[in-house]
């Protein structure tokens, strides 16, 4: 698998490393994907890197690569953001993968080997939900709202109604709420706030987990929040050009 720039992989790692220490990457002809739970079983993260993300991608036989995120992060930090990354896994000796970073103009090449682990990762079945509400908005705006309100209180309530979407945080000595209305004024798609809902709803989540989730804003300029009172929230970041996505499912807090 060859990525034109290591930046995407670095951003993906940054988006999951607080939640997941080690995980299996499933490789098949479609691409590379992973699904992992945090230790508290409160958030599930799914990453899909489709073939379209790669400059070249070949997978003769489906493989599962057990990766420890810590050493993987250390190796990736040796790659310049603009360097090409090639990951090779051999079907003959499946105890390691090779990573090669190439910097074209500087004629520099570095090679690493990463030991693979035997991880009995359990996969969870995530049913396709009919969502009560869906919000798409700039990922940077969602990140700022979450980071700001997380300072106000540890519970983040998201309410959808005809008023728009209201984010509320409640602390011991302060409370704050921010209301976003659907924005049709702006023309740039990535700046728009779109809200659709079948009936008003309100759900509460742990702000510290939502903070970790917003780190994936580096991967996509827009984020989609899908809510339904019977389900965990789905926070989805779609990468450009159908390269793939990162999705988080966060369980709610309930009275």
């Amino acid at each position: 698998a060859r990525l034109p720039r290591s930046a995407v992989l670095k951003k993906i790692l940054d988006s999951v490393k607080d939640l997941v220490k080690e995980t299996n990457w499933d490789c098949n002809e479609e691409g590379m994907s992973m699904q992992a739970l945090d230790t508290g079983r409160i958030v599930l993260v799914e990453v899909m890197l489709r073939e379209a993300a790669f400059e070249s991608y070949a997978c003769e036989v489906p493989m599962t690569l057990g990766i420890d995120m810590e050493p993987f992060g250390k190796v990736l930090r040796c790659a310049g953001g603009d360097e090409k990354v090639t990951i090779k896994a051999s079907r003959n000796d499946q105890d390691h993968i090779e990573l090669v970073f190439e910097n074209e103009e500087k004629e520099r090449m570095s090679a690493f080997e990463l030991k693979l682990m035997d991880i009995d990762g359990e996969h969870m079945a995530v049913p396709d939900a009919e969502w009560g509400a869906e919000i798409s908005m700039p990922s940077s705006e969602f990140k700022k709202i979450v980071m700001d309100l997380a300072e106000i209180g540890s519970d983040l309530t998201i309410a959808v109604s005809k008023l728009g979407v209201t984010f509320t945080a409640q602390g011991n000595n302060c409370k704050g709420s921010m209301v976003l209305q659907p924005s049709t004024a702006v023309d740039k798609k990535s700046e728009q706030v779109a809200i659709s809902f079948t009936e008003p709803l309100e759900m509460t989540f742990a702000a510290p987990y939502m903070k970790m989730i917003t780190k994936a804003a580096a991967l996509s300029s827009t984020v989609t929040l899908s809510l339904d009172e019977a389900c965990p929230i789905c926070v989805r970041y779609e990468m450009e050009d159908n390269a793939g996505h990162i999705k988080y499912y966060l369980a709610p807090k309930e009275d």
């Binding site: 409160i42 958030v43 359990e122 079945a125 389900c231 965990p232 709610p252 807090k253 009275d255």
Partner: peptide, 14 residues
């Protein structure tokens, strides 16, 4: 305050 639920209340093993 509200009590945190885990994903096991919503998702089963595949």
């Amino acid at each position: 305050g509200a009590k945190q639920v885990t994903l096991d209340a919503f998702f089963g093993p595949r």
